[in-house]
């Protein structure tokens, strides 16, 4: 029977070999992708004005629909109100989806009091 350590060593060797034997065209495309990523990271973030009035209008409409529905249905679950707040927020939905991950990162981040990049 193959023990864990031996199996893991063999897997690492096979995976390393595959990564090291990528063809020239693929390696070239990876280099280009890396250069593009770094170039975009250095470029100042384009600040397109957020259509806040549109977000606010959407939020009002959502709340109006929710209230009408509540009157008709007789009740509105507290979770639904929380979801509406999230949907009406102008923040990136990804932030909410990965909230647990960012909290963990902040806990392990020595500069935790500094503002989060890209989330201004």
């Amino acid at each position: 029977m193959i023990d864990d350590e031996s199996l893991q060593q063999r897997a690492r060797a096979a995976l390393d070999a595959r990564a090291e034997t990528l063809d020239g065209a693929t390696r070239s495309r990876l280099r280009q992708a890396r250069a593009q990523a770094l170039a975009r990271a250095r470029r100042p973030v384009a600040t397109t004005p957020r259509p806040r009035w549109a977000v606010a209008l959407a939020a009002v409409l959502l709340l109006a629909v929710a209230l009408v529905w509540q009157q008709q249905a007789g009740r509105l679950a507290p979770e639904a109100v929380e979801d509406l707040e999230v949907l009406a927020s102008s923040d990136d939905l990804e932030l909410y989806q990965d909230l647990d991950f960012y909290l963990w990162l902040d806990e392990s981040d020595p500069n935790r009091n500094e503002p989060e990049p890209g989330r201004t």
Partner: peptide, 22 residues
């Protein structure tokens, strides 16, 4: 390749100034 390119773009754009260990 598309997935890796996308991941590198997102990483470099948003998290480059995070501590290296993370």
């Amino acid at each position: 390749l598309d997935i890796v390119q996308d991941a590198m773009l997102a990483f470099a754009r948003h998290y480059g100034d995070r501590p290296r260990a993370s």
